[in-house]
Design a protein around this nucleic acid. Structure first.
Lengths: 328, 328
DNA sequence: TTGTATGCGTTATCAC
DNA sequence: GTGATAACGCATACAA
């Protein structure tokens, strides 16, 4: 690769010092307009492109944030990412995205790399399998925001949705539809989201004088849920409340394979309201989270930290909303 | 934010020079094992984390590549991205993702920023609205790979799918199903992909002694296609070949709204085979591209450049495959 | 208004 | 085996 033009090259060609070049490039006041014009012209002519690595080193600031997500191919995170990006652009920040594929080891590595890159801050959706990486960030006093989950007694910034309410709304809705044997397909409960959604499910049932019917924790992903439904084919249930829409879409497919009618035989409710939830047939009843907003707020929280507008931990809980469609 | 520990800090505490610290940290041979051990211990104790900005500046290498995609929330790109990431991880590279939202201005900015960051190379899916940014990369002799599209007479690395074949397969399939009035909902034809898919459509029709029935170019995105189908509600057609699956899924929804039966009244074929293509109901007949592979190869092409294993431009054309499902 | 010198964190070249 | 020192590209305090 060709070597890049540096301010030194410009200085030489313009017959001035690098200092003057720097002044011209950065719109500093104390410079002769003529000199400035000349320098700028030469810079353009030579095709100068500043080196952000050098700037980072100099300034101790990268104007870059890191985002660590479980799975950016899940439309939920894709949408959140766009929200983050939107705000980042607005404030002139770059975003580095790292996927963990829900692998805690990868999560640790991702955080480590981002620190090595000295990103100004990090937005992370942790697996919650463990939290060494989070503790590391705390010890370093590194600015970060946890997205999507909640740690008990956390003293750092978090944004997540009201999952208890979501689980509650979904389940109550199914009860109102006359369903009683409500199966819940959940993610692993070490994740706060999974736990809260379960508690919402439980609460709604108990309010109706019922006990949780059956809850099963499985690995996340379409296949995983599809297989589970097939596996439970001899179980009797009249509704399924799924941890998220990816699960729910898998459930729809699996139920179809089992010749169950949705919602007559089995009603299905998902969570997240990804766009595909309304595209499937029957369209999916689900709990909506404003994903874009979640991403935007996550960035804003981080930005407040970076600019030290706020030093106290903030915990934002996003409201959720039940979206009734054909599957229930 | 706390200041980071530097090799200088380690040196001071260990009572050695920074040079020695560097040697210990980088596993250099010419160092006393005892010294090394001691230095490493102190480094750990102090919580040393190397500064990649400084390394970049020193080495002129970032071990980072940039990826510029039209829309990473389209599952097509999400999947490609995973392929890129997979290979990048394998070779120890980081990946920066930038979305352009199909905005050419943003595309230019994205490329500019990546160059400023001195990423080692770039993988880009250009809008093809114009190609100033591509030319810039060429002029700089910057390593890059174009993904998903093809520029005529290009002298740089490209990976794209056999879109002519794809368009042909899709259309011939519809003809074989007895459809004759095949509407094509296309993206803008300044994109080579859109153009080639159209040419495939045309060829298949001409082979059957037919002329292209009707092709319309629209902006990409679900809404755009949904609205177009509604708009064309008085048109007579018995099949729709869509530029991609997002379009096709929108078409399914719109046709349902128009009370058309799929595939009896109108058959639908998409393109890409995103996972949701099989989740919708009726499931979608589509042209499959191996997206993960496309991403992996894109990285490999770039990596060959970076390591100078290859200097000649490579043009990889991925084969495609028709996946027959319920919508046709 | 402009230039010189220093330092950001690191590695590499060269003495010792 | 170890330590000074320069260099990477840039911004800036200070000197001129």
């Amino acid at each position: 690769m060709k070597k890049f033009v540096t301010i030194k090259d410009i200085a030489k060609k313009a017959g001035v010092s690098i200092n003057t070049v720097s002044r011209a490039l950065n719109n500093k006041p104390d410079i002769n307009p003529e000199t400035k014009k000349k320098v700028l012209e030469i810079a353009k002519e030579l095709g100068y492109i500043r080196d952000l690595s050098a700037l980072s080193l100099k300034n101790g600031v990268t104007r870059t944030i890191g985002v660590v997500f479980e799975d950016s191919s899940n439309p939920f995170y894709a949408e959140v990412f766009k929200g983050v990006e939107h705000q980042a652009r607005k404030y002139g920040y770059q975003v580095i995205l790292m996927n963990t594929e829900r692998d805690y080891i990868r999560e640790i590595q991702a955080v480590e790399t981002l620190i090595e890159k000295r990103v100004d801050g990090i937005i992370i959706s942790p697996t919650q399998f463990d939290k060494k990486d989070i503790e590391h960030l705390i010890n370093l006093n590194y600015p970060f925001v946890v997205l999507g989950v909640h740690f008990e007694n956390s003293q750092f910034d978090e944004i997540y949705s009201d999952d208890l309410k979501g689980g509650y709304l979904a389940t109550r809705h199914l009860l109102e539809r006359g369903k009683q044997k409500i199966l819940m397909i959940n993610a692993y409960m070490y994740k706060s989201v999974a736990k809260m959604r379960y508690l919402g499910y439980k609460r709604a049932l108990e309010e109706s004088g019922l006990q949780p019917y059956f809850m099963v924790e499985i690995e996340e992903g379409y296949e995983s849920c599809f297989n589970k439904i097939l596996e439970l084919k001899n179980m009797s249930y009249d509704a399924v409340f799924c941890f998220n829409d990816v699960f729910a879409i898998a459930a729809l497919k699996a139920l179809k394979a089992l010749n169950k009618r949705v919602p007559q035989d089995v009603a299905v409710v998902g969570y997240d309201d990804i766009s595909y939830a309304s595209f499937v047939n029957p369209s999916l009843t689900t709990v909506r989270i404003d994903k874009y907003k979640e991403g935007m707020i996550a960035f804003d929280l981080l930005h407040e930290r970076l600019t030290e507008k706020r030093t106290e931990p903030a915990q934002i809980v996003l409201d959720v909303e039940l979206i009734e469609r054909e599957s229930s």
